[in-house]
Amino acid sequence: MTQTRSETVITKEQSIDKYRITREPFYLNIKDEVSIFETAYKAKLPVMLKGPTGCGKTRFVEAMAYRLGRPLITIACHEDLSATDLVGRYLLEGDDTVWHDGPLTTAVRHGAICYLDEVVEARKDTIVLIHPLTDDRRILPVEKLGILLNAPDDFMLVISYNPGYQSVLKDLKQSTRQRFLSFDFDYPPPEAETQVVAHEGGVSESVARDLVKIGEKVRNLKGHGLEEGVSTRLLVYAAQMIARGVDPVTACEISIASPITDDDELQRSIREIVTTVI
């Protein structure tokens, strides 16, 4: 029985090259996170990145993957992400049953950096799957194939989550949390953020400074009506719009005021802040 099955089963491995990062992503080292991350990588320890949305977590991982020369496999977690989705599954192709490696399996096989974005969004039974990979065992059991994959030294697991807005129900369990080194991310300090916005958005430094100032003011409203401050990402969007000739106030309107809230009054106050600064 096993014999026959193994004949018909074709295992499809994902090509790893598409996961390689070829151009250096722009990342501005704020404190010493780059060197610490490198140390963690050498020590083969998994890393957790905490911080609000759009503050540069993903960019950081990309930059590190590039620095370390490893492919990066990013998995955006969601409520229906199952173990199968991560590890791999059999698919019918014509008459054949073909095994497809999941992203996690691919990462382990090739010693890539596997980045689980917004990990709390994943179901608890899914998260448990990564546990054996995150301690000194560094193994991934692939039950459907009946094999245990040993992670090579190159492999690294990185997860990220935003402690701010998710509900209590979606908190990360201690048994998971305590397997990771944790990096706290926040919006970069004004000077750094100005550089980021100027570089990424392709605008002059003075425009970038204005945008950062707006960002700072709008972030003051967090908790006073806003669930989350405006992200660096949105500031960069605004900068990009401005760089392409959109009127600055309109750019801020569509990339700052409107995205972060539906509340009319709040939007209006943000607009007033925008027109105060610009």
Partner: peptide, 8 residues
Amino acid sequence: LYVEGLTG
């Protein structure tokens, strides 16, 4: 909201 934003 406006002044809270400006002053934090």
